[in-house]
């Protein structure tokens, strides 16, 4: 039951305007409570999105005194723009590395740590540590760590007699290097989500599996754990996808899109277009594409959450 306010429907139902009852809260209370948020929501979210949609149809450049509506030309330009397509495909390749890596690692960590008799807490703390670290600070560390000549990683490789790998100077490896950092910082987060899902599995199911003769750990994993973690897994995949899709900090700090555009991702390109080259119209068009993709993921997420609820 919720608190009733002067319900408009009742006012319509009655022919005569009745004196307000003391039990009815004045209608303005709810609006007064919600007003600050509603105003901010309009100013900071709805209005900017509307402006951005309109701006994507213009040739506005920051600093220009005039601009013209050019219809969908920005979008058509994007369709022909090789840099944009490269950024888009880089982003998807990045997602395709980070998501399976961080989800599988997170699941493995969750299953292994929750199965421990001792030390579960300390391990989980260690694996969660990267989640709490400031991305920019850790990016500088990783940049040095994977440095081609003086990076400790390569020094270790060399001392083992292996050839050095220069991740961030090699166009074929740079994106992978960034993806490794993201897997490192995301796996602990996913581990916590999986661990929560694991504790929700009733232990009687494992007893039942044991009685049914599934005594091997791997049998139990595939017959009980994995099926029951299904909804959690779907959710973790979608959440990780959205996180990976929004990659920006490591690119900005470590590679700046290089070498030779191999780590140029969607948000970074958009950022450069808008805030370095000040081509607002085409940056807005890119943002619209970004928003569209994010919305698809978000719909997927709601759908997955729905499924989880009904599971």
């Amino acid at each position: 039951m919720s608190v009733e306010t002067t319900g408009a429907p009742r006012a319509f139902a009655l022919p005569l305007r009745r004196k307000r009852l003391g039990a009815e809260l004045p209608g303005w209370i709810a609006y007064a409570l919600a007003a600050p948020s509603m105003i901010l929501l309009c100013l900071l979210m709805l209005l900017p999105i509307a402006v951005m949609l309109v701006m994507s149809l213009t040739n506005y450049r920051f600093g220009d005194l005039s601009y013209a509506f050019i219809g969908v030309e920005n979008y058509l330009d994007l369709a022909d723009d090789r840099t944009f397509w490269r950024a888009l495909s880089n982003t998807f390749v990045y997602v395709a590395i980070v998501v399976p890596g961080s989800v599988a690692l997170g699941l493995a960590l969750a299953v292994m740590t929750t199965g421990l008799r001792r030390g579960r807490k300390i391990y989980q703390m260690i694996f969660f540590l990267p989640v709490t670290a400031t991305v920019v600070a850790m990016a500088t560390v990783w940049k040095y760590l994977l440095h081609g000549t003086i990076g400790p990683f390569n020094l270790v490789l060399q001392s083992l007699g292996l050839p050095a790998i220069d991740f961030f100077s090699d166009p074929d490896l740079a994106l992978t290097g960034l993806a490794i950092i993201n897997i490192w910082s995301l796996a602990g987060f996913n581990m916590v989500l999986f661990a929560a899902g694991l504790t929700a599995i009733p232990s009687e199911l494992y007893d039942a599996a044991e009685v049914d003769g599934l005594s091997e750990p791997l049998d139990r994993f595939f017959s009980v754990t994995l099926p029951l973690l299904g909804p959690t897994t779907l959710f973790v995949i979608v959440t990780s996808t959205i996180t990976a899709f929004k990659v920006f900090d490591t690119v900005a700090v470590i590679t700046r899109g290089g070498p030779r555009g191999s780590t140029d991702v969607l948000l970074y390109t958009t950022y450069l277009e808008g805030f370095s080259y000040f081509r607002m119209g085409s940056a807005a068009a890119m943002t619209v594409v970004f928003l569209a993709i994010i919305m698809v993921f978000a719909l997927l997420q709601t759908w997955v959450l729905d499924k989880k609820v009904h599971y």
């Binding site: 709805l46 999105i49 928003l291 994010i294 978000a298």
Partner: peptide, 23 residues
């Protein structure tokens, strides 16, 4: 209002960034 809140949940800062900057 609730629907707007749920919609806005999915929109990251990068989306309104350009107009906010101009404003």
């Amino acid at each position: 209002l609730l629907a707007l809140v749920i919609f806005a949940l999915t929109v990251p800062i990068q989306v309104p960034a350009l107009p906010l900057y101009l404003g």
